[in-house]
Amino acid sequence: MIPLLGIPTQVLFGQLLLGLINGSFYALLSLGLAVIFGLLNVINFAHGAQYMLGAFAAWMLLNFLGIGYWPALVLAPIAVAITGIILEKLFLSRLYRLDPLYGLLLTFGVTLILEGLFRSLYGTSGQPYSPPAMLTGAVNLGFMVLPIYRGWVVLASLVICFLTWFVIEKTPLGATLRAATENPTLVQAFGINVPRMITLTYAFGVGLAGLAGVLAAPVYQVSPLMGSNLIIVVFAVVVIGGMGSILGAIVTGFALGIFEGLTKVFYPPASNIVVFVIMALVLLVRPAGLFGRER
């Protein structure tokens, strides 16, 4: 194998793939956070727990009802979205007129409750979840061996991110969402049911987290703390991309995953902090984030 920059290509591309996988989850989760923050002005700290709920929903569907991966890919996000609708209707909707800090505190509390509940039910050790038969195995690409499921995760997140971006930026529904983000009162005066749109947007955002959870279940162990391990990095991604920026969340998510992967190759001790160093630098130069607009 020919070394590249003094690193064996298998190692380099292996880490790049890992970076892409992580980047896929960063992108999917930060995308949901960006959509929610954009319209609701809520910093949804429960996002990690909702990602965990998605993974557990898939695991429960399989173990309790015998429903496999493909149906779970649809059913689990819907189930998580329904819990999101309940949360928004019962609690979050009461906080919109207050400082966003209250939304953050509420969703932080929800996270603690959900994680505590699942920890007491299933402990902290992860539950295994196998990928579907048609996505097992690996392909030798010559310069690296690509596990098929991991390739699927990257492809699926790219497609989901693109579709979400397309709907928000290029369709009449997206135009209504963007307008409601800017001036909800006027959009409502035009005859659009903004409260319902807010509820459905929150459901969509947390549904995305649930979907990421199902995709993650065969890659990582299904565990109560899988969300909290990820959410801090995801928040850093959202800040770097620009709070509420859809494109920022997607591009930054994938880019930071790759950057983190490359750091693991070239300077492993810095790999856990590189995202936060980038966040600090970006905040110094562009406080609204790389793709964000000053509010």
């Binding site: 135009a175 983000t181 005859g191 409260p195």
Partner: peptide, 27 residues
């Protein structure tokens, strides 16, 4: 409810126009 008032047949053109910056003219 506020979102149904326009459906009574009222079009509102607010002070300072209320043009959305994140939308194109066509949007």
């Amino acid at each position: 409810p506020p979102h149904r008032i326009a459906r009574a047949g009222i079009g509102y053109v607010p002070e300072e126009r209320g043009i959305f910056a994140s939308l194109s003219v066509a949007e």
